[in-house]
Amino acid sequence: MPALELDNVCKAFGKNEVLKGISLSVERGDVCCIIGPSGSGKSTILRAINRLVHIDAGTIVVDGLSVTDPAVRDVDLRRKVGMVFQQFNLFPHMTAQENITLGPRKVLNLPKDEADDRATKLLAKVGLADKAASRPAQLSGGQQQRVAIARALAMEPALMLFDEATSALDPEITGEVLAVMKQLAAEHTTMVCVTHEMGFAREVATNVIFMDGGVVVESGPPNDFFGSPKMERTKSFLSKVL
């Protein structure tokens, strides 16, 4: 059973058709990178997966749970899906530790020490063991995003979504976040990344998907995709960004 399966997903915001029949599949342990110009609907796909946005037609299945089935509760779905946002969205009134333990304690109902234990290990994993008591305002952008990754991982989801995780970071700092993401990929975390970092996609992706105007234009393993793109639009996009 694939970790994630989309079948003919459609979504319009008012008259604006953002997704026009998207189908894709991600196996467990795979890293799927979605690239494409702004406004192509990439972020909407991620938000549709964890129901931050409700689709108009089609089906989405996450680890066996149907997103479109109203009998599936939001909380059961979202426990399986971790999300990392472009703007980090850390809770500014909580320390790094508290940001990470909020989900495990209030959603997974873990006791405090177990949640704290998880947080400590994850902070060490992303290289921020000494920042447990720091507030987001005291952290750099790269550090905040790494805490955000730890926060999503703390829920032990089946699938991790990265929505342009490095786009809001200064170029010198993207490296530290990409390093964490590469490490997760090496550990066979199932990931879907909307990204502009072509180097990252080339190095780590199992599959690259190019979206434009709400449809999947082309997809394939990175070597094929970057080496010999088939569609004109793909070639034109790649020539601009590479």
């Binding site: 938000r47 964890n50 931050l52 939001d74 909380v75 979202r78 426990r79 899906v81 971790g82 999300m83 946002f85 703007q87 969205n89 850390l90 809770f91 909020l102 989900g103 209030k106 959603v107 955000a148 926060r151 999503a152 829920m155």
Partner: peptide, 21 residues
């Protein structure tokens, strides 16, 4: 910021917990 609500929702917090925490 709307991103705060989204992050809280993405963690699985229900509306009341989103508001509360």
């Amino acid at each position: 910021p709307e991103g705060q609500r989204e992050a809280a929702a993405a963690l699985g917090l229900g509306r009341i917990d989103q508001l509360r925490y």
